[in-house]
Design a binder for these strands. Structure first.
Lengths: 225, 225
DNA sequence: GAGTGTGAAGCAGTTCACAGCG
DNA sequence: CGCTGTGAACTGCTTCACACTC
């Protein structure tokens, strides 16, 4: 039930990485960010309540979350910043470089393309596709914008792992159908539509409007109490 | 237990709008989008399973969600597209114009500023603040970019309801502290930090990285099974 | 003593199943 | 007969509390 603790190049066993609740996975992302900050400021050991305070949760939550990965804490002391950073990177799959294609080079697409932290985390946008003839052939950074009808070729040539959808809503479903056919297994969707795709393709939706509207709901509620 | 159904300008009673689960609120946003689509294509009545199919949930979920708002369905028939659209707009607080300030006119800020759907939904960005002297005094669309030190004035003058934070991570907390002091009650945070603010201020975080990293986790899991 | 790891309890959101109405 | 509305069962996440270890 315990991963050999002293191993330098440890291997995460399936039993642990299996069945980590989705809510926990999202928090692991945050913890990793905090750990990196702590590391930069020279902290070597961190307790669950420090992570909790930083992330707006409780210490119990942090410990439970981390316990899904194994036993990396030292009782009476906390967690080694360096070790835990390494573990989280591995669990989240951030040891690899992921090859990402950006579909849609409009406002949002361009902003995403230029968003530094993606690259720092190993998400390399190595292909950009757009259907606007005025854009095809131009460059985003040093990446050539390719025509939409070439997408299948591009996905194959660049061995794309993951696709970011930043095209207008009506175009999105048709495009991801082709993406799925080209055997890509992960889609990050910024288009304001609900995409339908097979079970084995991972999908996350980022909706700018949903968040704003939930704030609007909160404001309305606050107003009449 | 029932809101008088025939009233043209109906009023939503507190008992209903109270305690709608957050998860439901987010789905209501989606349903509203679908209803507007249905409306545009001339559909006048829609059943729970149609909404469910469109939104990737189940019919039971849709009915449960809508039941928090009252009884707007007709048994054997479904929901009136027009009526339900109206109800959702009201519940989500989209009958009002919300006055929004954008903090940070960088890549993300600019992209958000130019994102059309915000305005269509009644979120009007009426102020932009940045601390880069090169940007202050220029215009984003027809909005003058103001200096960061003027923020309090701007928030007051423009009677801002809601703030979008799109500044670099290190600047974010200091800025929202001032925003909170200026009595703004809602914050949409795009900066990659966990913000700490009083209970009575609504906060939503949009993290580009968290979503990508949860996909990365999913890809890693998929690979070794 | 300080702080982890974890069963068990508690809570919230989802799904089921069916009575009830149009 | 079709489809809603909803208590009841269920599932899964969070919190608690405490034994355990460094």
């Amino acid at each position: 039930m315990r991963i050999s603790p002293g191993t330098a190049s440890f291997q995460l066993v399936n039993e642990f990485t299996n069945r980590v609740p989705a809510a926990t996975v999202r928090r692991l992302s945050l913890y990793l960010r905090f750990l990196e900050d702590f590391g930069r400021s020279g902290v070597t050991s961190v307790a669950s309540n420090a992570l909790a305070e930083r992330g707006g949760t409780t210490a119990a939550q942090v410990r439970k979350d981390l316990s899904y990965l194994g036993s990396y804490g030292k009782r009476g002391l906390g967690y080694s910043v360096e070790e835990l950073t390494r573990v989280l990177r591995t669990v989240l799959g951030l040891d690899t470089v992921w090859r990402v294609a950006l579909l849609g080079a409009g406002r949002i697409g361009t902003a995403l393309f230029e968003y530094e932290p993606f690259r720092r985390r190993g998400f390399h946008i190595t292909a950009v596709v757009d259907n606007d003839p005025a854009k095809v052939g131009t460059r985003l950074g040093h990446i050539l914008v390719r025509a939409e009808h070439e997408m299948e070729c591009v996905l194959r040539e660049e061995r794309i792992d993951l696709v970011i959808v930043a095209v207008p809503a009506p175009a999105a479903q048709g495009l991801v159908d082709r993406v799925v056919a080209a055997d890509v297994k992960a889609v990050l969707n910024y288009a304001p539509v609900q995409l339908h795709l097979p079970e084995d393709v991972a999908l996350r939706n980022v909706s700018m409007l949903v968040e704003l509207e939930s704030l609007s709901y909160a404001l309305t509620r606050a107003a009449d109490c």
